[in-house]
Write a protein that binds this DNA or RNA. Structure first.
Lengths: 341, 341
DNA sequence: TACCGTTTCCAAAGCGCTTTGGAAAAGACA
DNA sequence: TGTCTTTTCCAAAGCGCTTTGGAAACGGTA
């Protein structure tokens, strides 16, 4: 069943039927209803490829995943993708993934040449981003999950990563902690740099010098959380509080604490950033984990909406989102031990 | 730059240029070269959507991922997808992912109605598969990663999961082990059922009755590996050998052994099935892990090739692959303790 | 009644490719 | 030389949709 036969069934022209279904105003309410009724009963579905050819738009969002990096194995990325894909389906957009064994930029180049996607989404950005320049050169629309130095010039969604570590650090300091360690994400990622700065500044504002021994950075895995925490908690002058870049990492830290017999919430306080990945539920941990919370899935959903608006021609200013995570206080944080109260 | 202008630049018809580029035989070698030369210098790339409309084929492979299940968070699935995507890119196919918040079958229905994909790929099949019936009803081509009872009627790729546990069980029995436990994958999955049978049969062939206390099943996570191993190794009559459904699980089992002070390779032997996911390298473990090995990424690559052949009209018999994993013997296996030698 | 602005519809021209059904040119053979 | 086959090319007709540029019908106003 195609437009032509649907039109002839209705005794209308293709034009009118098409415009009725696409919500144009120059068709009367009566015929509009008649058309959508008929479309439903005949099970008519416009052919996407014909529409794409006619409009020049594909309604497809592209994502590159380079297979050498193990980005795809990162549950955080998957969680983001899940939200993106969910919302995209609702908005009748499709998600296309593509990989190249060499460079990620090759994928973008291919996307641009083939014209299969309208827009691509960038994740895991570093400070030095040639990908962004390439996309701008190729004239390929894109939205960044995260930010770089040149973020004024493009559309992005990000959370206040500076605050993600600044707020809890401030809170811990106010509670009397002054030996605060961080288990950060990959040191090249912008979000990790921002968090590092947030931590450092909060300490400096209180006159505390950041201790290099209290800093670790790497992939946000359970294993790294465990290893880093083991190292740091066995220092002679061990910290009284731990800031983790993810709940998954915090789980590793919990394991280290249990192994070392250090009681969480009293002997050491732990705070993490919570992307709300299903496998790592902060509230269910023992003790429940204090977090700054900002669900990655929501970010994925939002970016789908932004993509749509972008393609509808929205102003760049409306396409720059910065979210502020909420701080959720739970039992994993307490006063520092041996505090002078 | 489109076909029309490329053709006029060359002083040829669109037909000839098109047929030259698509490798038809009715164009002379001389003009064929001239055409491909010109295409390169002008940077011509055929418009995919026009081609799709004209041919009725999209060259897109679809994958559904239901967001309620955490299939996507499973590194095994991702590893498979990576291989699929790599090879698909090489073959000039695209991968489209789509999710629905309700039922996975809705995604297939949408794929079929919209006509955006030529073929879909099914993963993680259970024994009772309504998805397969639906796809057959919808007349939507598909390839299954795994098998069900009705696998004669469709195209699939699978490994000999029966052998995956039968072989090592037989080997362990021959070495003198008779108390062999299994940490299996999700009990509803066909592969887990096959492995269970392989284990049981190998035991029975030797006159050993499978001990229900020695069976555990669940998601193949590190955590489950740890938990299951902890339970089983603290039984009064603990097993001398452990079969794990994945290296990730085995890692958990290793952790349990270390915690309990049980020496791997002498006090307990461990074998796992190795999908070769990058984060879990069996050879790097301590001691190196004995495995039955069949890289999931290879399966993904193979399924991309199968998809292409399917769409080219290959015979169903050529599209049913069964791979036999190789057994790789390493230090995690030894003679049983207190053996009568 | 004539004129004008709205509303409602439609014919036809694309979008950029593939493919059918020849036609012209070239070569083979008698 | 003429006929027949093979090689090489092409005009034109789609594929199924959107969109432009009217045209017809209608109602309101002078």
């Amino acid at each position: 069943m195609n437009l032509k036969s649907l039109a002839s069934h209705l005794g209308l022209s293709q034009t009118t039927v098409s415009r009725a279904l696409n919500g144009y105003s120059d068709v009367s309410l009566a015929t509009r209803n008649r058309v959508s009724e008929a479309a439903k009963t005949y099970g008519y579905r416009p052919n996407v490829n014909a529409r794409r050819l006619a409009t020049g738009r594909s309604s497809v969002i592209g994502i590159a995943f380079p297979t050498d990096m193990n980005m795809f194995l990162d549950p955080h990325f998957i969680e983001f993708l899940t939200g993106l894909s969910e919302k995209a389906s609702e908005l009748d957009y499709d998600i296309m993934i593509s990989s190249s064994q060499s460079e990620e930029v090759d994928v973008y180049r291919r996307f641009a040449e083939k014209g299969t996607v309208d827009l691509v989404i960038l994740s895991n950005v570093d400070l030095s981003e040639e990908r962004i320049r390439l996309l701008q050169d190729l004239n390929m629309p894109f939205i960044v999950h995260g930010r770089t130095a040149t973020c004024d010039s493009y559309s992005y969604i990000d959370i206040d990563n500076y605050g993600v570590f600044h707020e809890p650090t401030k809170m811990l300091l106010e509670m009397g902690h002054d030996k605060i360690a961080i288990l950060n994400g990959h040191p090249n990622r912008v979000y990790a740099i921002d968090r590092l700065n947030g931590w450092q500044d909060a300490l400096k504002e209180r006159g505390v010098t950041p201790n290099p021994d209290y800093m670790r950075a790497g992939a946000m895995s359970e294993e790294n959380g465990y290893t880093f925490a083991m190292e740091i908690l066995q220092l002679e002058d061990r910290p009284t509080a731990l800031l983790c870049s993810s709940v998954v990492m915090a789980k590793g830290a919990y394991r280290a604490c249990n192994e070392l017999g250090i009681k969480i919430g009293s002997e050491v306080s732990i705070v993490a950033h919570d992307d709300n990945v299903p496998l790592a539920q902060a509230a269910d941990m023992d003790p429940p984990l204090t977090v700054t919370r900002s669900p990655l899935r929501d970010a994925g959903r939002e970016i789908a909406i932004m993509a749509m608006n972008y393609l509808k021609g929205a102003d760049i200013k409306e396409l720059q989102c910065l979210w502020h995570p909420e701080l959720i206080f739970r039992k994993s944080v307490g006063a520092p031990p041996r505090s002078i109260t």
